[in-house]
């Protein structure tokens, strides 16, 4: 594999997992915020569904998205099968429960005494939410990292929905499977290190900026 191709694969990995993470967080964090702070009917069931969703097997998500996007499927006409858009869709589905679930637990863990204190200061509901949110920020950072960790290394869904097409839908994890199947173990392993490196970098940056923010 030429260096240029490797860069292409790394770039696509970042693009797919990054977009999926952004979508999952934009939807999941507010969802978790409401789930963690509000009381409403059916809350327990939603919590149960979210925590089950945290363990969704990627191949099953991949299979369902595949069937949706297939020629014969209900969304066949949008032509998302074997495209980065389809991969982003399935990874967003995988990451959403993690973003929502961890955010909700972080919010729920904020001391009730603090909430009473905030309310006693005559804040609006919106101001109250922002204060709780900033109190729970470490837990929310953990939610983002968990969602990221889930999708950056995931292979089942992107293989099924993306198809591992060279220069089009091949990402690091599917490239590792391909190289291993060809018996190119050393190269597969070095791709694994690239993947680990990306995860390490993302975590370091988050911890660094998370720490700065805390001061």
């Amino acid at each position: 594999m030429v260096n240029n191709e490797l860069l292409e694969i790394i770039f696509l990995t970042l693009r797919v997992s990054g977009s999926a993470l952004a979508i999952a967080c934009v939807l999941g964090i507010p969802f978790g915020l409401i789930l963690g702070s509000e009381e409403f009917r059916g809350k327990k069931i939603i919590q149960l569904l979210i925590s089950t969703g945290m363990g969704l097997p990627p191949v099953v998500v991949g299979l369902v998205v595949y069937l949706l996007l297939s020629n014969q499927g209900p969304l066949g006409t949008i032509n998302w099968l074997f495209s980065p858009s389809g991969m982003i869709l399935s990874q967003s589905i995988l990451a959403f429960p993690l973003a929502a679930g961890f955010t909700s637990s972080a919010i729920a863990a904020v001391s009730p005494k603090l909430i009473i204190q905030i309310r006693s200061m005559g804040t609006t509901s919106w101001q109250e939410k922002i204060t709780i949110f900033s109190q729970a920020r470490n837990g929310i950072i953990a939610a983002v990292l968990a969602a990221f960790g889930r999708i950056i290394s995931e292979v089942g869904a992107v293989m099924l929905v993306g198809g591992n097409i060279e220069g089009h839908t091949r990402v690091l994890s599917t490239a590792i499977v391909l190289e291993t199947r060809q018996g190119k173990f050393a190269f597969a392993l070095s791709l694994g290190f690239v993947l680990l490196g990306i995860a390490l970098l993302a975590n370091s940056l988050t911890y660094y900026f998370g720490g700065q923010w805390e001061k």
Binding site: F82, N164, E166
Partner: peptide, 19 residues
């Protein structure tokens, strides 16, 4: 030209989808 890097069965399924 789609180089899919997968087994025969999976590649056939992709060709079938892409016609």
């Amino acid at each position: 030209y789609n180089s899919v890097g997968q087994g025969m069965g999976a590649s056939l399924v992709i060709a079938n989808e892409k016609e």
